[in-house]
Amino acid sequence: MSAPTTSAPPPAAVTNGAGLAGRPRRRAAGWFILPATALLLVFFCYPLGNIIWRSFTDPSAGLGNYTKLLDDGVSVTVLTRTLVTALIVGACTLVIAYPYAYAMTRVTPRTRNLMTVVVLLPFWTSMMARNFAWYMLEQRGGLIDDAFSAIGIGGVVLLGSVAGVAVAMVQVMLPFAVLPLYSGMEGIDKRLLDAATSLGAPRWRAFARVYLPLSLPAVLSGFTLVFILTLGFYVTPALLGSPQQSLVPQLIATRVTDLLDFGGAGALGTVLLAITLLALFVVSRFANLSSTTEKAVTNE
């Protein structure tokens, strides 16, 4: 099944109201989209527009909130930390997901089914349960601390540090990387590898020169997805991190709940949104992101 593309249909199909196969398209069906569109406009687009608007007007009109971000001594540090964390989490997740997704393309359908379930289980498992699990593992005297103590390295308490947040985030994000990687790798013709080896290339070289470049679009879309999701992730840093080493989502939340500073929070949110859209724009030239959702919900 092909992924739904976001590109517009050819103009001819639109103007004469006929489908590509010449089937008459019912114009009436167009009204079906109205309720959901209205809901999203009122409860999604308007709130987003409103918070962006407030970042320029609340408390006073102008770029005050943005200049404050630059010189409040916290925002820039936190923003940098968040970007670096998201890049590291993205890279680690991809490195771990790559062999798994690759193996999925080479096993029997039966094994592949099992491997898919193993990926989808955490994808759909309660986010709170998974974060609570990491809380226990990373706490003082938790399994990770104990394991390191056993080999003579004491006091590895990840809880309350950016490192702890990143470790948990990598595990939480794995399904988001495996799914686009697999859907990309599925389309690579394995015979190309055979061809390369039969022409005398060693296996690793055939992989590095033939397979890896072909899988790059999938790698890029997986990386971008993880990067974007990590940027806006609130629960994991809020539970496993600390205010001293906070990430942007925590900063946004504190500004809103403790200070009711919607202008300042809006400015941070707008920056986050801008980075997200920029990343999406860059990657959309190479890959299709919507296929991940599709994979996750169609269970294929």
């Binding site: 609130y234 989502p249 809103v256 999406l280």
Partner: peptide, 20 residues
């Protein structure tokens, strides 16, 4: 538009909805 809620950072959606 239908896919946008998945793409926009969840904290931004939450704060925006909370605001209105």
């Amino acid at each position: 538009l239908m896919l946008a809620p998945l793409i926009v950072p969840s904290i931004v959606v939450a704060v925006a909805i909370y605001g209105v």
